[in-house]
């Protein structure tokens, strides 16, 4: 009995490992491809001769990037955006999810608030009206336009709220018994217990801010204010207009369609910060929290 079980366990572990390794492989190959591309000669890249190892190894693409000031300027804007935006997102998520996680009998207005927020998940005003609102608030071309409109994300709040609901009530009740108010309960009891959820929301918020490009493009009047994702989006030229009447201008554009190596280098640089931050946050998901250790 005992032996049998450990054999099946062993088989299962091997199977598990192999499947997960294959899945992981399917995910890592693209980035290897991009990385190899960024270090290959542009002709090799265009001729499709690059697989997962650089062909005709060269740093040209990176040298070209380093010579461009606007790229690094846009990276710095993105870093500030991630920092400020994420802090604001997290504060709002915490102070919004907590009241909404209270039972209705304890907080009667909860339902009204929830309806008020939930409606916005399905109905939006559209691009032009939003633009007019932002213009009238004098937010166009300002750093804050990257942060304020996305400050409140009802999706993330709902995820956090459900997480809090799942926490054992005994602990917070104990806090109340000890005389804590709501603010104290939130900061001293709920938040420390919500680390896995906070860490994942933090990660999503960071990635969201890091990758968001459309708002930068649409609300900034000057490319100098573009965050990195917007800057990169302007670099990927996809010319889908009809070329029946080619002007010299469009001709010149054509040759820029094939800077595959430079774009690969940009993409790779763009991913680095996330790859660096991610393992640190990951610690929180893996370790989880020691809810079971609460002893009364």
């Amino acid at each position: 009995m005992k032996v049998k079980r450990s054999v099946s366990f062993y088989v299962y572990q091997v199977f598990n490992t192999v499947v997960l390794a294959l899945v992981a492989l399917s995910c890592i190959l693209p980035i290897l491809h991009v990385f190899a591309m960024s270090l290959s000669s542009s002709n090799a890249a265009m001729a499709g001769r690059v697989g997962f190892v650089p062909v005709e190894f060269t740093f040209t693409a990176y040298e070209y990037l380093i010579s461009k000031k606007d790229f690094f300027h846009s990276v710095s804007i993105s870093l500030w955006r991630v920092l400020a935006g994420t802090v604001l997102n997290m504060v709002i998520i915490a102070i919004t999810a907590y009241p909404l996680s209270r039972p209705t009998q304890q907080f009667r207005a909860r339902t009204a608030y929830m309806v008020y927020f939930a409606i916005t998940m399905f109905i939006g005003g559209g691009l032009i009206p939003t633009y007019m609102v932002i213009k009238n608030l004098h937010l166009l071309d300002s750093f804050w336009v990257l942060i304020l409109p996305s400050a409140m994300s009802i999706w993330n709040v709902i995820i956090m709220m459900n997480f809090i609901k799942g926490l054992p009530r005994a602990i917070e009740e104990a806090a109340f018994v000890d005389g804590a108010n709501h603010w104290q309960t939130l900061t001293r009891v709920i938040l420390p217990m919500s680390k896995p959820s906070l860490a994942s929301l933090l990660l999503f918020s960071m990635i969201g801010h890091w990758n968001a490009w459309f708002d930068g493009m649409f609300y900034m009047n000057n490319p100098n204010n573009y965050p990195m994702a917007t800057y990169l989006a302007t670099q990927v030229i996809n010319n889908n207009q009809s070329m029946t009447n080619m002007t010299p201008e469009q001709l010149a554009l054509l040759s820029s369609l094939s800077e595959k190596t430079v774009r690969s280098a940009q993409m790779f640089i763009a991913i680095i910060p996330i790859l660096v931050v991610y393992p640190f946050l990951q610690k929180f998901f893996v370790k989880g929290i020691t809810v079971g250790s609460v002893k009364e």
């Binding site: 300002s142 750093f143 000057n222 100098n224």
Partner: peptide, 12 residues
């Protein structure tokens, strides 16, 4: 955030 923006936003 203001610091971050001031380089460009403020000036603009």
């Amino acid at each position: 955030a203001a610091c971050g923006g001031s380089g460009d936003t403020g000036n603009t």
